[in-house]
Design a protein around this nucleic acid. Structure first.
Length: 148
DNA sequence: GCAGTATTGTATA
DNA sequence: TATACAATACTGC
């Protein structure tokens, strides 16, 4: 399922257990692996880009196939409140991991928006990376901070 | 296995 | 201010 947004189309893929992946269309093609959560996620994403603050917390994520460390990092990242930012080190300390590991896990995060990786920044306030899309990360942060 | 990363803190010039 | 090093986890070759 393809979700049109202000930053371009997002590819949504869900399973009976929850969301499998949600990210900007980098994949030339994908399987129409839709499910019962597709509409719900689509609506939440639409509201997000309307400036509302939908809680993605009630949307289940399908972590199957991911390592326990990744799941831990994603779960912790999901708890970051709207408009706030956390440092990789802070997350790492909370999880008992190391900052480097947090970055590695977030780098491979397939849950764009649902796992607000854009709210995770350097310890000194700089943005850090975003899988080659730092501009997108900056846009999201400005969007959440300024409301538009 | 090995190397490259979405990091951080300390040390050195 | 800028560069170098060590330690961790995930991805791709």
């Amino acid at each position: 399922m393809l979700l049109p947004t202000l930053i371009g189309p997002l590819w949504l893929e869900v399973s009976p257990r929850g969301v499998r992946r949600l990210e900007p269309v980098l994949l030339p093609r994908g399987k129409e692996a839709e499910g019962p959560w597709a509409d719900r996620v689509a609506e939440a994403v639409a509201r997000y880009f309307r400036g509302e603050r939908p809680g993605f917390g009630d949307i289940p994520l399908d972590y199957s196939g991911l390592s326990p460390k990744q799941v831990a990092v994603y779960e912790a990242t999901r708890r970051v409140p709207y408009g706030r930012t956390v440092s990789y080190g802070s997350l790492a300390e909370d999880l008992g991991l190391f900052p480097r590991a947090v970055g590695a896990a977030l780098r491979a995060c397939p849950f764009f928006l649902l796992v607000p990786a854009h709210r995770v920044v350097h310890a000194d306030g700089r943005l850090g990376g975003f899988a080659g899309r730092e501009g997108l990360k900056a846009w999201l942060l400005r969007f959440e901070a300024g409301g538009a």
